[in-house]
Write a protein that binds this DNA or RNA. Structure first.
Lengths: 103, 103
DNA sequence: AGAATACTGAACCATTGGGTTCACTATAGT
DNA sequence: ACTATAGTGAACCCAATGGTTCAGTATTCT
């Protein structure tokens, strides 16, 4: 049903899952392999791979296969798109009390 | 499976759906009723009501039943939690090029 | 009082999503 | 050459999600 026309769509969908958010936090302190990411969750490599694919589609994570290992990195400026979206709404939310009872 | 212990969990889950994001944008320009929100999507009231319930649980939207109408408003400072989370990660993402090739 | 409006809740349905296992490929180490 | 390691893809499973309809309840209008 949902169409994922934009990167922002993908990004918000990717961020909805706690595991993926944890992966992003982990990657905040440096790149990691699929195995390294899977281990702390006690998750199969296949499972983690799927999460990584979604994060890649959302352009939040960038990966590169080096040897038999896949190195996963936070995409530079990954959050620009959603930050922008969020900040715009945030401005509105901060005005709510002032404009209470309109319309 | 996901536990939703925190408000941030709820918030990101709520933001994952394009319809709900559109509702938030709509509420950015003033409060609205369930009917008013449902109409532009050609969605049943019941359907929209469900979205609103999720947005309320995520504390992104606040509602009040006035007469037979439910007035929905953007929660003041709704996005503080996720903005904070995002900004922290964003700082890391901005450092990525500089720290490339670590570990 | 009676009719129309606005929402609400329960039940249901189809799709997606997060996860698994199993079998396979490719690289690294001895 | 042989073995172990790291990832991959296909197939499958079950729970959660987004939506519906239908049958109510509570307000508002005439």
């Amino acid at each position: 049903m949902v169409q994922y026309s934009t990167t922002v769509d993908h990004a918000f969908a990717a961020l909805a899952d706690p595991t993926r958010r944890a992966v992003l936090e982990r990657l905040g302190s440096g790149s990691a392999t699929i195995s390294e990411l899977a281990e702390p969750f006690g998750m199969s490599l296949t499972g983690m791979k799927k999460h990584i694919r979604l994060l890649e589609e959302a352009q939040l994570v960038t990966t590169e296969k080096v040897g038999r290992v896949r190195r996963c990195t936070l995409t530079p400026y990954a959050f620009e798109g959603i930050s922008t979206w969020l900040q715009r709404l945030d401005r509105f939310a901060q005005l709510v009390e002032r404009t209470k009872g309109d319309r």
